[in-house]
C-alpha cells in the first residue's frame, strides 16, 4: 500500500485517474490497528482494481481534516479525485471488510 502524506496526497489521490482507496489510521487508535491486517489483505487480494493507500493521521492531521475526516478508522474511495464513498468507524464495525469489498466491486 502507498503511504500518503502532505507531499504526495495531491498527486496520488486528488489528481489521480481512476479508483483510489485510502485508509485513514493512526497507531494510537486500537480499532485501526485491529483493522489494519484485514485492510492489507483486502488490498493484496484486489491488486489492480484500484490504487490502495493509507494515511497516518498522526502528523497529517490537517490533511485528514481537509478531507472531512475527524474520526478514525475511516476508509474512503475516491474516483478521479472525487470522494465517492466513505466508511466511518460504525459502518466498518457493523459491515466489516465484506461491506468494503462489496462497494469496491460496485465501483470498479
Amino acid at each position: 500500500m502507498i503511504e500518503l502524506n502532505k507531499e504526495n496526497f495531491e498527486a496520488e489521490v486528488l489528481q489521480a485517474e481512476g479508483l483510489v482507496f485510502v485508509d485513514f489510521w493512526s497507531e494510537k487508535c486500537e480499532p485501526c490497528m485491529a483493522l489494519m491486517p484485514e485492510v492489507i489483505a483486502f488490498a493484496e487480494k484486489n491488486a489492480g482494481k484500484a490504487k490502495f493507500c493509507k494515511l497516518d493521521t498522526a502528523g497529517n492531521k490537517r490533511l485528514a481534516i481537509s478531507q472531512k475526516v475527524m474520526g478514525i478508522p475511516t476508509l474512503v474511495f475516491y474516483k478521479n479525485g472525487e470522494k465517492v464513498h466513505t466508511f466511518d468507524a460504525g459502518m466498518i464495525d457493523s459491515g466489516g471488510i465484506a461491506a468494503v469489498q462489496k462497494k469496491l466491486d460496485e465501483l470498479v
Binding site: 493512526s26 494510537k28 472531512k68 474520526g71 475511516t74
Partner: peptide, 20 residues
C-alpha cells in the same frame, strides 16, 4: 449518525488528536 467520524466520536484515544 451522519456526523460520525466528522466530529461525533465514541473513542477518545482514537480521535482526541483531531480536536487539539
Amino acid at each position: 449518525g451522519k456526523l460520525r467520524g466528522k466530529g461525533v466520536s465514541y473513542c477518545a484515544t482514537c480521535d482526541a488528536d483531531f480536536f487539539e
